[in-house]
Design a protein around this nucleic acid. Sequence first.
DNA 1: CATAATATGGGACAAATGTCCTTTTTCATT
DNA 2: AATGAAAAAGGACATTTGTCCCATATTATG
Lengths: 190, 190
Amino acid sequence: MSHIMIRINRELLQYITELQDSGITCETYGPGEEIIGQKKRVLSVRIVKSGIVKCYLTEDNGNDFIQEFFGEGEIFGEIEVLNGNPSFCALETITDTEVCKIPGDRFGELLQTDKKFNELILKALASKVHYTAIRHSYHQSHAIEDNLLRLKKQFPRLIDVIAKRDIANYLGVTLRSLNRTINGMRNKGI
Amino acid sequence: MSHIMIRINRELLQYITELQDSGITCETYGPGEEIIGQKKRVLSVRIVKSGIVKCYLTEDNGNDFIQEFFGEGEIFGEIEVLNGNPSFCALETITDTEVCKIPGDRFGELLQTDKKFNELILKALASKVHYTAIRHSYHQSHAIEDNLLRLKKQFPRLIDVIAKRDIANYLGVTLRSLNRTINGMRNKGI
DNA sequence: CATAATATGGGACAAATGTCCTTTTTCATT
DNA sequence: AATGAAAAAGGACATTTGTCCCATATTATG
């Protein structure tokens, strides 16, 4: 549960890694590749083995809003496979990335037959609800500066790893505002 | 999936209603009662039979932020029971309310033994992730007026049923800003 | 290496939102 | 009907954030 901004789920990653299942395959991506497009059908569930993937949503007015950064063990596509909707987010790698790919029907079978897997997925979903709720609440009720301080505390290498534009889109503010805030903090010696 | 602001889950409600289970009891509340306090231990999962419950979070700076309004069939407490954390939200009735109460251990048993129940909970969780993601993204990237229009479209009786303060806290803005926006819309004849 | 594309940084001004405070309205209770 | 508490409404001003634009770095690529 270390840095919350880039979500990880070691328990799930370990379980999936140890699960010898011929249906589960591995994919590799370079930086900046799109894994799933917004509004596309989702046929497989994926779990990050290594790397960072951003999960974002482009609004009708052209603004991008980043929902989450997925790190090791984080799962995506499961929401869509479960309820049969097209993807509401786009998924794009930030760094070099490896993912496990579980076909949708195999995912359904595992949920039914593997109690431990079922439990891990329930917990992963509960965790997503929990953290997004806390994050959005914090964002809505605090100034940009507070949010930045919180992120840096969680993840000191933030500015080296994540592009400014992405940080701004994650906080739901403009790049200009983010820069202004960083400047203000520098002047105050933070 | 009708009005999204006040979330409902008919399928789950129906299933729970038809499930004859001696462990599941019923509770009734008047308006404005607290069902679960923030940071309290949660020992039971609850499902709304009738009424509206607000799920909100008080930040360190005293701001309240409303996560969701739960209507018929919506479940709460399941996140906490699943991962064993204290409640991150407070739950408070808005109208007269009836809820089904499922003790945590019984909830765990049902998940293990009742495939249909398990599936409904998985879908309910997936749905929560889906809708909160979409809502927060919309809120962050649109002006108050757009958000209000969206809410009114989803739920025309909004202003009659939900207090202004609650609408403001749901949108993550101040009451003053909300009033100003409503005024501006009136002048424009919206 | 040259050039283009992209990321970063910031000035000047406009617009949106928040803060503080006062007034009015509504509504429950005596 | 009288009173008080809570909800709603809004004036005046401060602050924050956004928009538009341009300049400078940095990186990718032919």
